[in-house]
Simulated scan of single mutants.
Amino acid sequence: MHLTPRSVHLQNALRLAVALAGARLLAGTLDLAHGVWVLLATLSLMRTSAADTRAAPAPALAGTVAGAAVAALTLYAAGDRPLFYALALPVVILVGFTLGPLLGPAWTQTAFTLASVLVFAQVSGPGWRLSEVRLLDVAVGGAAGALAALLAWPRGGRGELARDMADLLAEGAVACRTVTALLGDDRLQRDRSQGDPLQAARRAMHLAEASFAQYLTERTRRNRPEPHWEAALATGRTIVHGAELLLMTHQEGLREPLPPGPAAALTGLAGQVAQEVLRAADTLRGSGQREPRTTVSRYPAEDSGPLRRAADRHGIGDAHVLLVVDAEAWLTGVAHDAVRTRSAPPRTEVPATRRAEPPRVRVRGAGSGGLRP
């Protein structure tokens, strides 16, 4: 599913592979004494965007300098006493990496540098040049990681987010029509050549979720309006998860086709909802007009053609009544989220630590029963 250049997971894998290959080449070319530290520095300093990677080396180098200074003093004071280094190592690891998440990356690098020097002091013998080597390796590894981040997908998750969200809504619009047609026609249900009607939308949803999750972890350096990504993702999830629930719940009812009247009413409603979703996708791409803010669905239950036809009960059984009600609730819930995506006010980027958590997945109805949160 993620074997595509548009997947942030694949982008991260390729970016890291290039960085590690470059770091290994530099370590071999410069004939560094402990080249593995170059690779470890690249792993620890690499971030998913160029902005984040540029911000990482400063505290890392500061922590490395502090750790190298403490290590040099320790080596000078302790001398050739392997037992001292063996006893000090677990204490440094326990204290350093326990407090690291609380005190920040500079403290973590300090502890890591000191622990590395204590390890190699037992393996290859103590010497003050271990601190110098560690400092040089971190600088080389950080440079390799920063260069790779600048060259390979420097925008990180934000670079793919708008396109992934728009593609999710576009595929979701197709799924609205396809699933509604499947619900109303038993011949399509029996025709296995159609395949999974939600495969493309589900794949687009996973790509969009990955981009959004990475976007939330990245630092923001500019304050500018942002679309309401949570509303867009909620629209796609409502489409995919609601359709899955419908197909699973009404498998028995799909054995017989809906009467022509309710089937045509559902098909018409699905077409209108799909247009709403496509307009929301155009808004995310920047080619659509943002509406005045509103969260009121354009398809109230009292004006629903499918519900009126189901209420008449002319030639329609109980199973089909429930199918129509649930399908109408699903489609109007999708329309509600799509309108909210288009009319949501632009948001301003904030640092990742200040962003609110995304909303929980919900499948809405339109006050007509059927699907529930």
Rank of each mutant, 00 (worst) to 15 (best):
R360K: 15
A329Q: 02
L118C: 09
L114C: 02
F212H: 12
R163Q: 15
R285P: 05
T178I: 07
A86G: 12
A111C: 03
R372L: 14
A234Q: 11
E276Y: 10
D52G: 09
L14M: 13
L331A: 06
Q109T: 00
V240S: 04
I239P: 01
Q189G: 09
S343M: 01
A66P: 02
P227A: 12
A243C: 08
V296R: 12
Q11N: 10
L168N: 10
P259C: 12
G315I: 09
A56V: 00
A327V: 04
S343I: 02
G96M: 00
V138G: 03
G156H: 09
D31S: 07
R308H: 15
A152Y: 15
V321R: 14
A27N: 04
V273M: 06
S304T: 05
P57A: 01
A148D: 01
D196Y: 09
D185H: 10
H206D: 03
D31Y: 09
L135N: 00
V123I: 15
E276G: 11
L83H: 07
Q194W: 15
E291I: 03
G365Y: 13
R158G: 04
T113Y: 00
V339E: 11
V92L: 06
D186M: 08
R81Q: 15
R340D: 02
R237E: 07
D196G: 01
D80S: 05
L278F: 08
R47V: 05
T332A: 07
A146S: 07
S124Y: 13
L151G: 04
C176W: 12
V140P: 01
T294M: 05
E256P: 05
E171A: 12
A111Y: 01
R134V: 00
R298D: 08
T341S: 10
G157C: 10
P262E: 07
T353R: 15
A329S: 06
L25A: 13
V38W: 14
